[in-house]
Amino acid sequence: MSKVIDRPEVAKEQHPVAPLLRMDRIPHIWCPGCGIGTVVKCFATALQETEVDLNKLAIVSGIGCSGRAAGYMKLDGFHTTHGRAIPFATGLKLARPELKVVVFSGDGDLAGIGGNHLIHSARRNQDLMVILVNNFNYAMTGGQNAPTTPTPAKTSTMPYGNFEHPFNVPHLVASCGASYVARWTSLHVRRMTKSFKEALNRKGFRFIEVVTPCATLYARLNKLGLGLDLMRFYHQESEIRNGADTRDVAIGYQSKIICGKFVDEDRPSYLETMHEYYRKVLGDKYVPTPPEGGMLREQN
């Protein structure tokens, strides 16, 4: 039977998340077998499924491979300086509190050069959702050692293998006071999407780490094969332990990756704490920044 089915809308819409992407910039720059695109797809799906107001949602990235994510999403997108995505996002959020602000960046950017901002934002339980894509190295610049590189993985600046102790990032942010902490690999597409959806509707500092394959550098320098081989590795070696004590979730070299939702607490966020406190001490004299922001307008 050769019935040609005329469904132009299929060809036109191209892909279910196309409306959320800057299709004029696709194909993206990420390598074959890189997992960052998968995380973007899951985030876009989460946005569609939670039906958040996309006009009031901003995405902020720093520098690096993952830092390009803000540039591919059809949202107010900010590609900022190396490590400064979190403080930039803090300014956006506080100056226009009605915005939902999502930081999407990599491990080197957020936990390395931006580490100070990461811990202080978590400490304040700042109203930000942070997606940290962890590929275990500085990929954009050629595979250098990152604060997340497990020992003794090889990187281009640790050619004999890394001897520095890496961060256990979920533990770091959880101990600073983040109200939501989860980790998945880019293979856990459904759970990752669910975490994104949950986090979009929570307040305070929400942190999701996603372990992704860097086929071109981390995998090549360590002779781990292709992106697909790393996905197979995640398949075999990741273990879901929701509610696990974050002290136990450090990642070793090619060893078990503990995934799951580790923290989900209803703690007052930065803005809530600030409002509540000022209302208590200043009473009616307190004038909060209006939700639509502190921009002066012509009074007619």
Binding site: A89, T90, G91, P288, T289
Partner: peptide, 26 residues
């Protein structure tokens, strides 16, 4: 707090200037 403004003491000057840039976009 009395006139509808927000002040935040950031963790360093890198963060302060980044936050100002972010806020300016609003």
């Amino acid at each position: 707090p009395l006139i509808g403004g927000t002040f935040i003491q950031m963790e360093d000057e890198l963060a302060s200037m980044a936050a100002v840039a972010g806020a300016s976009w609003t």
